[in-house]
Amino acid sequence: MKRNRIIVHIGYPKTATTWFQESLFPNVVNHRFVSWKEANELLLSSDCFNFESTYVRSLLLDNEKNNLIISSEFFSTAINSGFNYGYFSFGISHKIKLAFPEAKILIFIRRQQSLIASAYQQYVKNGGTFGFRRWLYSGEVFRFEHLFYDNLISHYKKLFGDDSVYVYLFENLKEDINAFTKQFCNEHMLEINWEKVNFNPKNRGLRRITIPLLKIINHFYKKPLGRKRYICHIPGMTLIGKGVVKYLNPMPIFGRYLREDDFLKPKDLEYIKNFYSKHNQNLIKYVRRDDLEKFGYFL
């Protein structure tokens, strides 16, 4: 009997997951791609104690290819939901193990200081109003422990085995997306319709004037995205916010795109270094030390 090939891509958030889900994985011709919406419905938004692993497996494998790619960055927990103290990522890992014990697990990581700056911008895009330092340090939205990459990697290796967990650096992808993608697809035996793959990034950051404009708009609707302030709820304001991101933010008149150092000051970097360096040293077991040093991971 031909063995099924099951690939489960769990994030992290802000590591080009949208590009994988919209540009690459839908154009894999020898696997069925399960979108994050379907994956979340079946695996994330189901009760842990009543999870029907046999049903989920039969439902997703009931097709002529019998090879799967499942992708959802929510499996490692959405970056702006306070990590939920690790319960979501821990629980979902066991669901995946029950339904697909033979799965290959793909984990992309990104140096913490870069991911933090990107995640805060996403928080504002999604309706957030907190200033950067309240978002970063209060623990109400973001939690530093979420980016202890070594903990999640070692947990999945214990569940699925060393040879079934693959760890990649977002920075290697960003440095040469074409070369990285071809090597990545060869490694996982993915046959691609390359003519349909768009190598342009899906999400851009915010410009200098866009972010304060969005925060003003965000005060006028209530949305369950974590913690925020709001003055009153005005129907339709969410659409206005999305319009600002889609139509106004690309315009250079709104200033340059924000950089990492627009958010993180020397004190913040020192705190981040002290918080993560010990855990990042453990990453040397999974990725090349030279690459970690090259891309600025605190060690």
Results as ranks from 00 to 15, higher is better:
residue 10 I to N: 03
residue 19 W to S: 04
residue 36 W to Y: 11
residue 52 E to M: 06
residue 53 S to Q: 08
residue 54 T to V: 09
residue 58 S to M: 10
residue 59 L to H: 06
residue 61 L to S: 06
residue 63 N to G: 05
residue 63 N to L: 05
residue 66 N to H: 11
residue 66 N to D: 12
residue 70 I to K: 09
residue 76 S to M: 09
residue 85 Y to C: 07
residue 90 F to Y: 06
residue 91 G to H: 14
residue 93 S to V: 09
residue 95 K to A: 14
residue 114 S to H: 05
residue 118 S to L: 12
residue 127 G to T: 07
residue 131 G to E: 05
residue 137 Y to P: 01
residue 144 F to R: 03
residue 149 Y to D: 01
residue 150 D to S: 15
residue 151 N to L: 12
residue 165 V to N: 04
residue 172 N to Y: 06
residue 177 I to C: 01
residue 182 K to D: 08
residue 183 Q to H: 10
residue 194 W to N: 02
residue 194 W to C: 03
residue 199 F to V: 09
residue 217 I to D: 00
residue 219 H to C: 10
residue 226 G to Q: 06
residue 228 K to E: 03
residue 230 Y to H: 10
residue 243 G to C: 12
residue 243 G to I: 01
residue 246 K to P: 04
residue 255 G to T: 07
residue 257 Y to F: 15
residue 258 L to Q: 10
residue 258 L to D: 02
residue 260 E to R: 14
residue 262 D to S: 03
residue 264 L to I: 09
residue 267 K to A: 11
residue 268 D to N: 13
residue 274 N to R: 13
residue 276 Y to H: 11
residue 280 N to R: 04
residue 284 I to E: 11
residue 285 K to T: 05
residue 291 D to Y: 03
residue 292 L to S: 09
residue 294 K to M: 02
residue 296 G to N: 09
residue 298 F to V: 07
residue 298 F to H: 11
residue 299 L to G: 00
